[in-house]
Amino acid sequence: MSDTGGLFVRELERGDGKVLRIGQLTSGDVGCVVWDAAIVLSKYLEAALDFGAPEGHRTKRVSVLELGSGTGIVGIMAASLGADVSLTDLDELQDLMKQNIAWNQDLLTGTCRAKVLKWGEDVAGYLPPPDYILMADCIYYEESVHPLLKTLKDLAGPETSILCCYEQRTTGRNPEIERRFLELLERDFALEQIPLEEHDAEYRSEDIRILRLHKTHG
Rank of each mutant, 00 (worst) to 15 (best):
T26V: 00
P130R: 07
V40C: 08
P195T: 07
K60S: 14
D154H: 10
C112Y: 07
D207S: 12
E167I: 04
S205D: 13
W119L: 09
G23V: 03
D91P: 00
V64D: 00
C165M: 00
G157M: 13
W119P: 08
L65Y: 00
G28M: 09
G17F: 03
E183L: 13
L67P: 01
K43L: 09
E46F: 06
Y140F: 15
E143T: 09
D122E: 11
R10C: 15
G72T: 03
R179I: 01
S42H: 02
E197M: 11
P147F: 04
Y44I: 04
E206D: 09
T216M: 13
R61N: 14
P175N: 08
Q193L: 11
D154G: 00
A38V: 05
S161D: 12
V19S: 06
Q94K: 14
T4V: 09
Y126I: 00
K153Y: 01
R14Q: 12
E142N: 02
I177H: 05
D95S: 14
Y140K: 01
D50S: 13
R212H: 15
S63H: 06
P175F: 08
H57F: 00
K60I: 10
H146P: 00
P195D: 11
L107C: 01
G5Q: 15
E159Q: 15
N100K: 09
G157S: 11
K153F: 00
D154I: 01
Y140M: 03
Q105N: 12
L67F: 00
L96R: 06
K153G: 15
L155E: 01
G125I: 01
E121G: 02
D84R: 05
P147I: 04
E159F: 00
T26S: 11
G75W: 11
G82R: 05
H214Y: 12
D106R: 12
L127M: 10
L152E: 02
C112D: 08
R58E: 11
E197Y: 13
G68N: 00
D16S: 10
D50A: 10
S205R: 04
H214M: 13
E192L: 13
I208R: 02
G70V: 05
G70H: 01
E198P: 03
V33G: 01
I139C: 05
Y126S: 09
K118I: 11
I39A: 11
Y166Q: 03
D36Y: 01
I22F: 08
I210E: 04
L127G: 06
A156L: 05
E143V: 08
R180S: 13
V33W: 10
L134T: 08
L184T: 05
M77H: 04
L127R: 10
K118S: 13
R180L: 12
D36E: 15
Q168W: 00
R14A: 13
V33F: 06
V64L: 03
A201K: 12
R179Q: 14
L182W: 14
C112T: 09
L107R: 07
L93S: 07
E92C: 14
G68D: 06
L96N: 03
Y141G: 02
V40D: 07
E92S: 13
K215E: 04
Q105S: 15
L152W: 01
L182G: 07
D106G: 06
